[in-house]
Amino acid sequence: MVTENQQTIRGSFELKDVSVTYGVETAIAGVSMDIPPNAVTALIGPSGCGKSTLLRCLNRMNDELGNATVGGRILLDGVDVYAKEYDPVELRTKVGQVFQKPNPFPMTIYDNVAYGPRTQGIRKRAQLDEVVERSLTRSALWGEVKKDLKKHAFELSGGQQQRLCIARALATEPEVVLMDEPASSLDPISTQQIEDTIAELKENVTIVIVTHNMQQAARISDLTAFMLRETMEAPAFLVEVGETRAMFTNPGDKRTEAYITGRFG
């Protein structure tokens, strides 16, 4: 099924009837959607609606929680990433993640960015130098830190730390970058910088972003998926997914309209 087009542009997800169960409790159920390559897809919805849980399915970070079971099928460029023989460690080099709180490693800026490539066995200094510069440039941090690459990452401001984390995720040349409310702990200026970075990144990578901020979703995403958990007894589900502009001007579902106009959540 692989066409020439899919070989050049990679990083598309197909979700088919995806569910997540923690122990006996089903957190989300019946999510089917396509995530197109080289675009920003926003997951929105009130707290506890399973946005982050769904995001963590895409790089199998739910595996690390021990008692989570994922049902349905998740295909990355047509390949089932939950197939038995599929190695989650390999998946995570293709699908990177940026977390809610900046979480640089307690080491230098350079070593933070080089961590992923080194994990993949790249040892040559020149090659690492190049990856570090390219990644930091893509996350719009290079200009600020190029003279201080040996500085400890904790000396950076919160916004800089988050852009460092984006550079770190980009250093493994992923096809997809997952972002879990990447700007929620940042001030408005840093948030603006992160959003600008996302807009530039989507030329080369697929971005899936969880956000609480409606304006942010409207500003940066091409596609928006609205999730909801109506009662604590029933699992969360996908209400609708569509082009962001259409969704925000003319939502197809009353619940979506109520949420994006701020009547609940």
Partner: peptide, 11 residues
Amino acid sequence: DLRQASLALGA
């Protein structure tokens, strides 16, 4: 956080 960051990088 730190463990998650490392795992998410394919470590």
